[in-house]
Nucleic acid binder design. Structure first.
Lengths: 201, 201, 201, 201
DNA sequence: AATGAATGAGAGTTCATTCAT
DNA sequence: AATGAATGAACTCTCATTCAT
């Protein structure tokens, strides 16, 4: 790589860092190209030499976040297909459950970005939701593979209460957006059944 | 109630409806008082006779959404305290798990609003998160009460996959914001344990 | 006076007091009828039953301030005409010099109002300046009467420095607005002459 | 200076001119950025590339007015310190007395601005009063230096009447705002003494 | 006599983006 | 490649005043 390309890449990275920062602090909509550029120390116009627009920068950040996750999930799904023992399944499933929390630390701010924007109105939210569609599809494949074989008691009340709220949130959200694959009443039963059993001594 | 108060209340309701609509379609930040007012068919300034500002309208909508939920949760918590049998507990827990999904249909769009704004930057997100703090506190109390006694198999793969993603999202979010009550590694183990057990035949 | 008129007068006075307050704190332009009315505890519309508009209230306050001053000045001018001795003149002149400072204490806030608005743009400033025209005309007559006879050393540096700045301010203002009665170069000489002599041991 | 900088400076000057005009005609509060911009022939937003806001423009105009005055006063104060003869003092004092009136003609409209805003409510008035604080402090120092030595008869009744009103105005203002350095009764005596003596044949 | 709901123009300010330099 | 001046639409919010009740 020539010195020129290297400089260009460095600047592109600097813009990403500044943009991530701003998007996290203020949200995509409230962040301004002006402030991102001035945080990097470049002119407003220069920004547009590196990214088509504010959304372009956001998409680049999403690519950085979601594409490794998608790759891990795809790997997991394929591994499960050829897995035989329950133990093997469990190992892979643990890996999946802990995924968001155990990814490399450089993904943390990007994960924050996911949480900031995953439900926002406007174009940024839609970019995120497009990626989440892929991820959830993979999760489903993985769980299907796991369904036939495997086995799982709780210690931490707080953790589980958060988990239940989060799960219910997600299911309700699916219902609210009219997700046709979800049977609302069945889902409520299912959810409570799973948690009661999961919690059981 | 005089004719004037009645008219005023009707208009206030109309503003709420139009505002809810706009907040849902565009998000709090992107929605404009101008467009809300014109959707109601009133002048820009008239809006400010009914709500202090855009955030004031948002807070009124939140009140409508969260205050019945908080009341139900408080009732649940108290009911659990005096509940004796496992069956009794299970009934109450089922009620809680299905809560967001079973509230009266007029709350649906408000629940959508919750999802739109719960993680947004800016003042609307903060209003939502203030309410969610109360709700999650109550959820925790409820789960604590239930912990000692109760017992809980899954049918619908999709539902459970969403639940797991939602639970993980919530826990990761807690970790990301530096929630001190959450031990990250323990939480990952806990979560996977619960779901493995919950799913177990 | 009937009970009705009495009540009406009391309310009118209350509006004046609240208006004066607001005009002093925020200036005529920045004060709002809304806030004045609510300070009195009446409805916005009621205000307009007592004063034609915001300027009408301001004019009533000016009347209260300036008309007693004008009367005193007119009395002074006439007294000077029939005064014989230097001592007599001096007494009357002292009275005039101390006038703004020695008026009854209830005029103080109104005098503040004069200072706030005397040079402001817009209609309020013009009302004030109309009154000031009358006052300055009377002052001039008084000084003319005094010129022929009388005689007049400083202790307080601060006081005199303020006096000189104030005098110069006033003269420059006259020049700036193109006052034809003022010869700029002569005025500068005059002013310095007066103060040098006045200050002289 | 490049062509760009030159253009920028020219435009900045044009904005100042238009702003000054508007502030004079309408007062700071009533003037609008919109109208200033359109008087210059630029877009509303362009204004904000040159000045942070309306007050920023006002501050630039104040700088242009007051900073040369402050410099002259500082020079005067220092000159007086090393002045020996009464004649020398008198020369310097004359210079000071005529200062506002003899500054270059391009300061005239700015001086008008001073008079418009010096007593206005709101931020513009405060900017002016901050500058006036510095100026009056210097005037006092100058008068202190002069007190020990110097000597000063009136011709123009009108001029002197205005001077007296101006001086009284300034002193009363000091009293009204509760200036602790001013003894009200002493000031009234002082003022009348000075003028009687100054006017004396 | 009193109310207060309604108006709609107008305020200051920020924004993403373009394009001549 | 980089700049930063320019745009002008969009935003939230305030105002004096009117008039049906």
């Amino acid at each position: 790589m020539g010195i020129r390309e290297r400089k260009k890449e460095a600047r592109r990275a600097a813009i990403q860092e500044a943009g991530l920062d701003m998007f996290l602090k203020e949200g995509f909509d409230r962040a301004s190209v002006e402030r991102i550029a001035s945080a990097v120390g470049i002119a407003r116009g220069t920004f547009y030499l590196y990214y088509e627009d504010k959304l372009g920068l956001f998409e680049a950040l999403c690519e950085r976040l979601y594409s490794p996750i998608v790759q891990v999930l795809q790997g997991t799904a394929e591994a499960l297909r050829s897995a035989a023992s329950t133990a093997e399944h469990q190992f892979i499933y643990l890996q999946m459950a802990g995924l968001l929390a155990t990814q490399g630390p450089e993904l943390r701010p990007l994960m924050m970005l996911h949480f900031r924007e995953s439900r926002s109105a406007g174009p940024a939210g839609e970019v995120v939701r497009r990626w989440m569609g892929r991820i959830e599809h993979l999760s489903e494949r993985i769980l299907s593979e796991a369904r036939d074989q495997n086995a799982v008691a709780i210690n931490d009340v707080y953790t589980v209460s958060l988990a239940i709220v989060g799960a219910a949130e997600r299911l309700t959200w699916a219902w609210l957006i009219g997700d046709e694959r979800l049977d609302r009443d069945a889902a409520a039963l299912e959810l409570s059944a799973v948690f009661f059993k999961g919690i059981q001594a």
